[in-house]
Amino acid sequence: MEEERRWEDMDTDCLVNIFRRLGLEDLTLAVPSVCRSWYRASLDPTCWRVLKFRGLDFMPWSNLSKEFSNRYGLPGRFSFSGFLKFCVARTHGEAIEVELPLLFGATLNDLTYISLECPKLKKAVLPNLQTEDEPHLPEIIGRWHELEQLEMECKPSSFQELVDQLRQNCTKLVSLKLYGSFKNDDVSAIVSKLPKIKSLCLSKSYLPKDKLLEILTGCKCLHELIVKDCIGFEADEEVSKRVSLSGIKIFEHEGSKLVDEFGYETDECDPFYVQVI
């Protein structure tokens, strides 16, 4: 009887095709431990083109932190920055997607490192930065000339400058997702400087009805608009008519309302500081 073929004898291209579908925890801990051929295959940059850090547990007592430190003989305490640099180094500049965690979030130095070492990014999912670091975001994001999708936790204070960078350097951008307070200048910047945007998600934002209508009218290429759980508008007859005329295929607005549960129409008054006399 013909001897059964062993896993470690599989063709390297087949192994790479399998490994590129795995998450970072498997790539760093499980796969390299099996055999030398699997370890060699896991070093192929193709396996590291998608770097999804979100969803991993980076707490010092987590299995990932402890096992990674033990396997690679890390001196001192495990750090997210160290793990990030380890993974980015494996990409050899070929990464096309990065998704950073919310907690244990990336620092300004981490984002700068990624922007320099991963110039071919097509999708970036970024956490909040410290307020004092936000002015650096436009320069960082502007380095990704191939960027098509950008997701951020909230609208940064440097939003106007960010949109300028997207217009000048990220000409392939078609999808933008973030939340915050969108007023006259913000919406005007999206409409005038990102005319080719196809997918826009502003859920959980402050978005007045007139600004929503401006987006519907001004963004000619838009085919998906997600504005769920917003404050500032209701999807009335006028909005529905404008959506119909715009040609948008996907319009999600569930949970959006004109005022919040405290009765405020804008974001200018914090209900927690209102005294009832």
Rank of each mutant, 00 (worst) to 15 (best):
M1I: 11
E4V: 13
V16P: 03
F19G: 11
D26T: 04
T28Y: 02
A41R: 08
S42N: 09
P45S: 07
P45C: 06
L51K: 09
F53Q: 11
D57Y: 12
P60K: 12
S65R: 08
G73F: 07
P75C: 03
F80W: 09
L84E: 03
K85R: 15
K85G: 08
R90S: 01
H92P: 00
I96G: 00
I96P: 00
F104D: 15
G105R: 15
L108M: 05
N109M: 11
L111R: 04
Y113K: 05
Y113F: 15
E117N: 15
E117K: 15
A124Q: 09
V125W: 07
L126I: 08
T131C: 06
E132P: 04
P138K: 08
W144Y: 12
H145G: 15
E153C: 07
S158C: 14
L166Q: 05
K172L: 05
V174K: 02
Y179V: 06
N184H: 13
L194E: 00
L200G: 02
L200M: 01
L207K: 01
I215W: 01
H223M: 00
E224T: 06
C230F: 00
S240C: 11
S246F: 02
F251P: 03
H253S: 13
Y264P: 08
Y264V: 05
D270W: 13
Y273E: 13
